[in-house]
Amino acid sequence: MKSNYEALGKHIRLVDYRNSKEASNTVLGISIDKEFMPSVANVIGTDLSRYKLISKGLFACNPMHVGRDERLPIALYENDEPAIVSPAYFMFEIVDRTVLNEEYLMMWFRRPEFDRECWFMTDGSVRGGITWDDLCCIQLPIPTYEQQLEIIESYRAITRRIAMKKEINDNLEASEQAILVESISKNQTIPTALGDFADFIDGDRGKNYPTFDEFSAKGYCLFLNASNVTSTGFSFDTCMFVTEEKDRAMNKGHLSSYDIVLTSRGTLGNVALYNEHIKYANIRINSGMLIIRPKVKRLSPYLIYAFLKSSYMKAAIEQFRSGSAQPQLPIKDLQKITFAIPESDTVLTALDRQFRSIEERISVNKNEIDSLKALSNILLVELSR
């Protein structure tokens, strides 16, 4: 594919449609993942008629925090119903949609190289913003419209597959929890505290805790960050590593097979199971996490993992929240959370077999999702070639 690089400003123009008739009260922000999301700003008592009204096919971006986040939050609005965004956002449209396709342009905005270029252009303020003129100076290739559509279709095929696999995993998770609830309701149970069947291990928070310059993009031991342990298990989109020497210098906090990781500070209660499908041989938790390690044979890691993902566990965590500025889950409180455990070993064995099968399928799907994400990133890189 041969194409000439042209200035972005040649193909986009600012628009300023205001919510003067209050056509919408849905306030949206933009995430660093370049997607619209409900705004976290407190708009009570705010004059929403001043906000910008965005409709299908328009772009919006937040130019103010690029220096801090090293990414430009920018997104294409694709919903049929209009919404509103901050008056401080840039809102723009493509000048000629027969020359430049909006989905192709959004793919270009998703490239890591685009974010790096925006970051280099930021001003000297603390947070670092980017100007409209700087954005317009960025160069991008403009292949023929037919070639753009071919690229878009390839990208859509990947994203459709990812969405399908995620939906399958959501259904598997729901099925697992339904099986758990049914088993508890139909069988004799024994109230059992979490601390009676699992050990809690926190990370090394001492003098050997790695400093910022000791992390790298590749290395011997994956050092988990907050984005690696999500509401749906492990995610390895953004990883940081430490050397073997640093890992060995630290004490507790290194994962063993079938350990469960739980986030105990900031975002509370996310859990992930470290099984044979995880591609990293050495993983260590950070200071905002705990390792939950089974200590009785009759309760398997898969069964404990299912309990920790349950709505009952989420409700219990809400009751034990502590700390205001930084919510956290003390081990002493977690140990007291009591579950209704089926009394029959036969029932527990059957649950283990079912949950193991479900989690195996979820893990296989997650690995495929990771491979598809890597493929989509390659496609985005190839846009510049």
Rank of each mutant, 00 (worst) to 15 (best):
R385E: 14
I369C: 09
L308N: 01
C118K: 01
I341F: 03
E360L: 10
S376F: 07
L172Y: 09
V381I: 12
K186M: 08
D33F: 14
S322M: 09
P301N: 03
P342W: 01
D199H: 09
I12D: 02
V66F: 00
N187R: 06
S154E: 10
V85A: 04
D345A: 08
N4M: 15
L255C: 04
F59L: 04
L28H: 00
H277N: 15
N270F: 06
R385V: 14
A60T: 05
N228L: 06
I168L: 13
R127V: 08
D202I: 10
R110W: 07
K34N: 11
N4W: 13
N270C: 09
F355E: 00
I184D: 02
K279F: 13
E81P: 07
R248D: 13
I152N: 01
E93K: 10
V347D: 02
N377E: 11
N377T: 13
L379V: 11
D370H: 10
G195L: 07
Q139C: 10
A350F: 09
A193F: 08
I30K: 01
D237C: 10
R265K: 15
E78C: 09
S376N: 12
P73H: 00
L194H: 02
A350C: 11
V229T: 00
K186W: 05
N377D: 15
F355Q: 02
T338M: 03
T131M: 04
V15N: 08
P143Y: 05
T230G: 06
R68D: 09
I362Q: 06
K295H: 05
F120R: 12
I369G: 07
S300D: 03
P342Q: 01
R156Q: 13
V95G: 06
